[in-house]
C-alpha cells in the first residue's frame, strides 16, 4: 500500500517536472509574442477604433485556437518519429511514399526553419529590451540586444535539458505574470470579453477598411507554434499539451488586458501596449525575464542534415 502510494506520487511528480520542463523549453517563443504583436498593429499616436481593437483581439483568439491549438497541439504533435518532431522527422515519416517532391518540400521547410531561427532571437530580445525606453526614449538598444543574444547562445551550449530546468520556473512565473496583469487590466474594461465571438474577427477582415492587411501583424501571436513541434522530442507530447492549457489562458488574458488598455486610453503611444499595463512598481523586474524568456535559438542538432544520403 505504502509503496503503491510512493509510485503514484513519483509519477505525478515526474509529470509536473515534465510540464515545467516543457514550459521552459518550447514556449519561450510564443511567450514573448504579447510583447510585440499589438505594438505592430497600433502605431504611436493612433486613435484607437473599438471595431479594430476588438476585431484584432478576436482574430488573435481564433488564430491561437485554429493555428496553435488545432493545427499544432492537436494534429501536428501526433506526427512524431519515435518521439521526435520537426519538419525533418515529418519528412522521414513520409519519404518512402512520396519521393522527390517530398524532398524539395522538406528542404524548403528546413531552410525556412533555419531562417526563422535567425530572426526569432533578435525580435524577441529586441522587443523586450525596448521596454526600457519608457525611462529613456533615446536609449540605444542595439548593443544591449547583441550582448543578450551572445549570452543566450553561450548558455545554450549547456544543453537543452539543463536550460529547461533553469528556464521552466522562470517561464512559469513569466506566464503567470503576463496573465495576472492582463486580468487586472481586463477588470477595467470587461467589454473586451465580447471578442471571443468570431463575428468581431469577421467584421474586421471583411468590413473594416484595410482590415485584411492587419493579418500580417496578427500572425505574430502564433509564430512560436512551429517551435513546439521542432522541440517536441525534448519534452514529450503530453507535457506540451498539458502546459499549453495554462499558457493559452495566460496569453489570452494578456492580449485581452492590452486591448482593454487601448480602449480605455483611446490612443496608442510609443511603448508597446504590453508595457503600458504593467504597474510602475514591478516594471523593471519584468523587463529582465522578458529578455531572457526567449531561448529557442536554432533547430536542434540533427545529424541527418549532415549525412543526407551517406
Amino acid at each position: 500500500m505504502d509503496q503503491h502510494y510512493n509510485i503514484q506520487e513519483f509519477h505525478s511528480r515526474v509529470k509536473l517536472a515534465g510540464v515545467l520542463l516543457a514550459t521552459g523549453i518550447v514556449f519561450g517563443d510564443i511567450g514573448t509574442s504579447p510583447l510585440y504583436t499589438l505594438n505592430a498593429l497600433f502605431h504611436s499616436g493612433e486613435v484607437v477604433n473599438p471595431v479594430k481593437a476588438l476585431g484584432i483581439l478576436s482574430c488573435i483568439i481564433w488564430t491561437l485556437t485554429l493555428q496553435t491549438t488545432l493545427k499544432y497541439i492537436i494534429i501536428t504533435l501526433t506526427a512524431d518519429n519515435n518521439g521526435e518532431g520537426g519538419i525533418f522527422s515529418l519528412y522521414t515519416l513520409i519519404r518512402s511514399y512520396f519521393g522527390k517532391w517530398a524532398v524539395v518540400l522538406a528542404v524548403m521547410g528546413g531552410a525556412f526553419l533555419i531562417a526563422d531561427g535567425i530572426i526569432t532571437p533578435p525580435i524577441s530580445v529586441a522587443s523586450a529590451i525596448e521596454g526600457l525606453q519608457k525611462f529613456n526614449p533615446d536609449l540605444d538598444t542595439v548593443p544591449i540586444v547583441i550582448a543578450i543574444i551572445v549570452f543566450l547562445f553561450l548558455i545554450q551550449q549547456l544543453g537543452t535539458q539543463q536550460i529547461g530546468k533553469f528556464f521552466g520556473p522562470i517561464m512559469l512565473i513569466w506566464f503567470s505574470f503576463i496573465g495576472g496583469i492582463g486580468l487586472l487590466s481586463i477588470f477595467s474594461n470587461p467589454s473586451v470579453l465580447k471578442a471571443i465571438n468570431p463575428y468581431y474577427a469577421y467584421k474586421l477582415l471583411s468590413d473594416f477598411p484595410g482590415g485584411f492587411w492587419f493579418l500580417g501583424g496578427i500572425f505574430l501571436c502564433t509564430t512560436g507554434a512551429e517551435a513546439l513541434y521542432s522541440d517536441m522530442g525534448h519534452v514529450g507530447r503530453n507535457n506540451i499539451r498539458v502546459s499549453w492549457i495554462y499558457i493559452k489562458i495566460t496569453l489570452l488574458l494578456s492580449y485581452g488586458g492590452q486591448t482593454a488598455w487601448l480602449l480605455n486610453n483611446g490612443v496608442a503611444n510609443d511603448l508597446s501596449p504590453f508595457y503600458n499595463i504593467i504597474p510602475e512598481a514591478i516594471y523593471i523586474p519584468s523587463v529582465i525575464p522578458a529578455s531572457l524568456g526567449y531561448r529557442h535559438c536554432q533547430p536542434g542538432t540533427d545529424q541527418r542534415l549532415l549525412y543526407a544520403g551517406q
Binding site: 493545427k71 501536428t76 519538419i87 513520409i94 518540400l105 521547410g109 531562417a115 507554434a225
Partner: peptide, 8 residues
C-alpha cells in the same frame, strides 16, 4: 515554414 508543414 507553417505552409510547408501543412503540405507535409
Amino acid at each position: 515554414t507553417m505552409l510547408i508543414t501543412t503540405f507535409l
